[in-house]
């Protein structure tokens, strides 16, 4: 890159305060944004990648002179786009690509604000997660519920799950497949 031998200009001075604000925004929002993303992708490596994508995009495009409410909205909107793109790959749909979908600065709509304060603390406390899992599993037939409990809640392998249930590994794989197919039909786990 070109080096600049000239003395600091007014442009540099204007840039400095917004950089400090940028890190302030990051420190306040990185954990809630990561949790929001993790709840929807279910694994840490992907959650880290998508969180990085959101904040790296913010470095390029976020207007840090806006008020915090608008900034938080923008971050959640970008996160939703990133999550949608992530799942589009699974549906074999063409990925839109972060650069082409502008998050925009339209008026705040409730869909893009992320969880409210009470919701956020309930999520953080884990009670909501427990309720969501219970509520979903309760709607399933007993054997489907059992296989998903063993795999997801107890984090057993397929082999261990099969042993617990007294069935073959092959049967366990088919059972979990059907259980998830049914679970996908009956409802959503994550908040809206």
């Amino acid at each position: 890159m070109a080096t600049n031998p000239e003395p600091p200009s007014a442009t540099d001075a204007e840039a400095a305060p917004s950089r400090g604000r940028f890190e302030e925004i990051y420190d306040a929002q990185v954990v809630p944004i990561y949790r929001f993303i993790y709840a929807r992708v279910g694994n840490a490596p992907d959650a880290e990648d998508l969180t990085a994508q959101v904040f790296m995009r913010a470095v390029e495009q976020l207007d840090t002179t806006r008020d915090m409410g608008q900034i938080v909205s923008w971050l959640y909107r970008v996160s939703q786009n990133a999550i949608a793109d992530y799942w589009r790959a699974f549906y074999r749909l063409p990925v839109i690509g972060a650069d082409q979908v502008g998050a925009g600065w339209e008026p705040v709509d409730t869909a893009a604000t992320g969880p409210s304060d009470e919701e956020a603390s309930a999520i953080a406390g884990g009670e909501r997660a427990r309720k969501q899992v219970d509520s979903l599993l309760r709607r399933l037939p007993a054997n489907y519920r059992r296989v998903l409990e063993l795999r997801f809640i107890q984090r057993l392998s397929v082999a261990e799950t099969a042993d617990q249930m007294g069935i073959t590994r092959g049967n366990a794989k088919v059972l979990q497949y059907r259980a998830l197919r049914k679970a996908a039909l009956v409802g959503e786990v994550a908040d809206g």
Binding site: A39, I123, R181
Partner: peptide
């Protein structure tokens, strides 16, 4: 259909991490 199942599985995996280990189950490293 399987993508729907994968999504359900991902949400279930995330929610059970938190349900089991508390909030740190969903916190970043």
């Amino acid at each position: 259909d399987e993508a729907e199942m994968a999504r359900t599985a991902a949400e279930l995996a995330a929610a059970s991490s938190v349900a089991q280990t508390g909030p740190q189950g969903a916190d970043p490293d």
